[in-house]
Every structure is written in structure tokens, then in C-alpha cells.
Write a protein that binds this DNA or RNA. Sequence first.
DNA 1: TTATCATTCAAAGATTTTATTGAATGAAAT
DNA 2: ATTTCATTCAATAAAATCTTTGAATGATAA
Lengths: 230, 230
Amino acid sequence: MNTREFKSSLYKQLALVTKSLSNHHRLEILDLLAQGSFSVEYIAEHANMSVANASQHLQVLKKSGLVDTTRDGKYIYYQLFDERVLETWRALRQLGLSQNHEINMLLEDYQKRKDQLYLINSDQLLQKIQSNEVYLIDVRPKEEYNLGHIKNADSLPHNQLKERLQELPTDREIVAYCRGPLCLMADEAVNLLNKKGFNAYRLDSGFDDWLAENKPVEKREMNTLTKNKE
Amino acid sequence: MNTREFKSSLYKQLALVTKSLSNHHRLEILDLLAQGSFSVEYIAEHANMSVANASQHLQVLKKSGLVDTTRDGKYIYYQLFDERVLETWRALRQLGLSQNHEINMLLEDYQKRKDQLYLINSDQLLQKIQSNEVYLIDVRPKEEYNLGHIKNADSLPHNQLKERLQELPTDREIVAYCRGPLCLMADEAVNLLNKKGFNAYRLDSGFDDWLAENKPVEKREMNTLTKNKE
DNA sequence: TTATCATTCAAAGATTTTATTGAATGAAAT
DNA sequence: ATTTCATTCAATAAAATCTTTGAATGATAA
């Protein structure tokens, strides 16, 4: 094997990793796995795929070393291989968000209001939490809340919001947060709440960023994602 | 458009970026562009492709926002869009290197010697440069050296090494460096030099990492890559 | 041991991606 | 105005990726 062939093999190997990132379903899966570990069934349902298809995509991710599995009872749980995968995914997602005009258009479109974005960043939120100025709700599915959530947040899954409005305070700001910047559940929640007369904002990032920024969380060890291999 | 369709569009847009990273030729191009801006012709030659093929791959990268072009005379120069692309590429490359056993096997194979790796890291190198203990050679093509190089390095392109051995000192360590960790020219140089009786090491990373670490360089402004748009 | 059921596999057709070829463009230089 | 030539385009065939379907696996729980 000459130098040229060696070089080509190297980049082909590297491309195994990037190829596994090149499919939109797999990106959605990764974004979900940034929240914790889940069974194939859960992933298929929450990323809107058939179980067989999800299984195949998960195997691609596993073969490239981005995710790993553990079995518990009759379920196989998939998780990100380690923190570096989370870090790299966040960098990539951030790059895509900043570079791609279309995405920003889509997000703005979705939020419908260009002028008042009702956004709050993580530092502002942290401050308000500490001075007890906000009521913080986690609109992700309960399962994900249970795996870990922002300190002092209450779980109020997006699909139960309408029926549980009376649990919310009217005398304080409400902040809703979600998985990450691409997660739309928080947008919908904030939209609804403001329509109903509440004073609501959304966290501009999400739980995975919060975690990566080492801000206070509950119930989830920071090293949940750490592989303790061998 | 409902939420599900929105979500799907978002990830599809993001996948435009990751898809453009999913081809081994394009990875090699990115790795080259981490050194500076080059014409289509130069890129085609140094990444071992036909010009038409390189042009098409470059257009994919451009459409996804990862690279940009400027014209100078009759050449069109492609460059990374901004520092964030370089950062993200380095993170991705690092992840691939650490995750992929095959790549490490290939690199070890290439270096042929598992026990003595003749590697030196950038901090060690910097120290030795400052105390004048090493003779540092840049084995990349002269064009790339001219765009910028490690302070105090001399240019000795890989393909001229054999004929110019007499220029090298025998009383000092020699350190060779190259584009990045995947660049094999430094390995070959170190191999040859040690065979010829010199005391040679290679920098374990490369010029792009050196630059990203803000270590001293010559001739290239740190913001060569900065887009000054509009 | 047997039944259950979450997950994976295998095959096939549809879609997308890729390399090659030769021609077309169009900016710069003469 | 014309020529040059770096780059891009367009068409095609080959290769790879993706989704669906229904069946197979194989670990767990009974």
C-alpha cells in the first residue's frame, strides 16, 4: 500500500463517522440521545420512524462509534458513547444553525413573531432561578425529565399543558425549556401560554446545552454519559 | 405545515451541512483548506482528484456554507468560511481519531514502529523552540509554508528532502511537522531522517492545530480565515 | 422448557450520490 | 475584439443509501 492509498484509507475511515452523521433521521436520533439513553422503541416513536428503520439507523451510529448500547431487562438502551460525542454534536449543530439561513427562517417562521422572541438565555435564567423570580417548566416527556432536569424545574410535558394550566402561577414569569435549540415543544408551550395570558419565555438553548455548561441539574449525574468500559 | 413536518425540515436542513461532510474526498479537501485558500487546480492535484470532480465537491461544500470563494486574477480561491468551520472540523477529526480503532491501526502501521513513536506534542515543541534546542522543518509544499508557518520553521518540502539532507544539522534534534495529524508527509520524513542517522521527531498534531492553539506563527495573520463580508 | 416480545435481519425496489467525459462559460490578458 | 484557460456544467452510468415488509433471533420471564 503506497502513501496515496494509505491517505485515502484514512479519510475513508474518518468518513465512516461523518457518513453516519449525514442522515436527517440520525441527526434527530442524536439530538434525542443527548437527553439520555432510550430503548429502540422509544427512539422510533419520538423521532417518528418505524422500529425496524430506527434499529437500522442506530446500528449505523453504533458501528461508527458514536453511540453504544446496554441491555436492561428486555430492552436495549442506546446512548451517546461519551461526552466528546455530545460536545462534537453540539458544535456541529451550532455551526449548522449559524451557517444555514434556511434554518433560521424556519425557526422564525415557527415562532411567528420576529419582533418579540420571548427568548431568555441560560445565564439570565440561572440568575432568575436563584432570585426565585421564575416558575420553570420542563416540557419534555416525563421520561426525559426523570433522567435529569434543570434544578428547580417542574415537569409539565408539552402534551399535558392544556389540561394543567391551572397549576401555573399568574404572578410570576414562566420559563419553558426543552431538549435543545431545535426542539419545538418549548416554542409551542410559550405560544400557548402567552395566548392564555401568562407571561412566558423560552430558554434559547435547551437541557443538553445546560448540561454542557455545567449549570445546576437534579437527578442526573454529570457522568451518566461517561463510559466506564472494562 | 405541522410540527412534525417543521421538525423534519429542520433536521433536513441541518443534514445539508453534515451530508457535505460525508464524503472522504470532501474531508480531504477540508483538511487541505485548513492550511489556507487554494485554487481548484491546486486542490484537485493535492487531494488526488480530477479538476471537474474537485470543482463539484467544492460546490457542495460551498452550498452548505462551509467554504467560500474569492477570485484573484484568473484563479478562484476556495477557503473555509470562518474559524468556526475550522474549529468544528478539528473537533470532528479528533472525535474520529479517538473513536475509530481502524484509523489508529492504519497510522501505527504507517509509522511501522509501535514502541518508539518519535512523537512530540506542541507544548514540548514550543518549549524546545524557545530554548533553541531543535531544528524545525515544515515538510508541506512551499505554497502552504508561504501562507503561514510555525515561527522559526524552515521550509523543506517532503519531496525535496532526499536531495537536501546536507542542509540539516547533525548536532540537534530535528522536528518535522505537516498539515495535521492525518498528514503523512511528516511521518515519512521522520522515518527517512532517522534511517539516515539524524535524531528526528514529528509533531503529533500539525499546523492547523498549532494555529488553533494560538501558538506563534509567521507570515500568516490569525484572521486570514476571517470573512470580512460586505 | 416454553412463550413472549424487543430487536434485528434480509431482500427488493426506489432514491440519491458519485466519477467520468467532453463541452460550455466567462473573466482576464493580449 | 479575440484568445486563453481555469472553472463549471450536463449527461450518463455505476455505486451507495434508504424505506418497507415480513420473518428470524434470542434474551427474559413465566
